[in-house]
Amino acid sequence: MILYTVLPLEDVLEGIDEEPTPTMMLSLNGLTLEVEQLEGFQARVVRLHSTDPEYYLVAHCQPGSIIHLGEF
């Protein structure tokens, strides 16, 4: 991997030693979301697994958005 950036390497790699939160796959209406489980039946979207480009325009599918798991 080659980085071409004005940022110092320690800034770019900040937090690399921290263990990332484990993710899980969630199926929602035929769409697969990779989510990170949060407290209180909530989950944060990490990645979207779909080939349908329309889903990438949906706000609640965006990485970082929080969805409620309680209803599933």
């Binding site: 929602l28 349908d52 329309e54 949906v58």
Partner: peptide
């Protein structure tokens, strides 16, 4: 629950082959 809207399937789909292609071994989460 937040329902994903029912879409008309798009005529062209897009598949991204990114990063490392993971095979028989799960790569570290980074």
């Amino acid at each position: 629950p937040p329902q994903a809207p029912e879409f008309e399937a798009q005529p062209f789909h897009c598949l991204s082959i990114i990063g490392q292609i993971e095979g028989h071994m799960v790569l570290p989460p980074r």
